[in-house]
């Protein structure tokens, strides 16, 4: 059986209802990280999860909504909307090409996703915020600058290091959770069949 995919077909009601859940997972993931005092962010688990089972467009909208809601309390997030959207899109596309069926493939996918988000985030950070983000990673940027690097390379290197660690965890967690989902539910989503097939092997 082939399902129709694309911008027109992806926004079925069950996929739309996935978006608020995805946004909430992004928030709750970050909250659990705070409660358990872990040294990572993990605030894109929801975006990755919805992109994997709902497709790239649903992933993009989840990313957009996440930063719009974050922006209500901290307007700086509005500037970083394209980053979350890019993550959703790329994760969705990688999932379509079967990159989320085995754990080692997920790690390769994580590197690609962190490269994407670094490429999108660095210009925003350098041009709009002079290289700062207001959290602890700025110390690393300052260290790179002090060692004689240019602002672009300093921000880019800091980002890629942070993102790689963060995205490997995020995508692995999303991957393990999707693996636990029931085929009955996955079959209702346009992109769920990829993960049902990978279960049989």
């Amino acid at each position: 059986m082939t399902t129709k995919r694309g911008l027109k077909y992806d926004f079925s009601l069950i996929a739309i209802l996935l978006i608020p859940i995805g946004v909430a997972i992004n928030f709750v993931g970050a909250q659990i990280v705070l409660l358990l005092k872990l040294p990572v962010y993990l605030d894109t688990i929801g975006t990755a999860l919805t992109a994997m089972i709902g497709g790239p467009w649903i992933g993009m909208v989840t990313g957009l909504c996440t930063n719009l809601v974050k922006g209500i309390l901290n307007p700086v997030s509005f500037a970083f909307i394209p980053v979350q959207m890019g993550v959703g899109l790329v994760v969705g596309l990688l999932a379509m090409s079967g990159m989320f069926t085995k754990a080692w493939k997920v790690i390769i996918a994580a590197v690609l996703v962190s490269l994407t988000s670094t490429i999108i985030a660095s210009p925003i950070q350098v041009l709009m915020f002079g290289g700062a983000t207001g959290n602890s990673s700025d110390a690393l940027v300052a260290t790179f600058l002090a060692s004689g690097q240019q602002i672009w390379t300093a921000v880019f290197s800091t980002k890629i290091i942070n993102e790689c660690i963060d995205k490997v965890f995020c995508l692995l967690i999303a991957f393990f959770i999707v693996k636990k989902m029931s085929p009955r539910y996955l079959s209702k989503l346009n992109y769920g069949s990829i993960f049902i097939k990978s279960k049989k092997q």
Partner: peptide, 12 residues
């Protein structure tokens, strides 16, 4: 974020 921008820009 303002403090960090000042540190980064004024020094570098």
């Amino acid at each position: 974020i303002v403090v960090f921008i000042f540190i980064l820009q004024s020094f570098f």
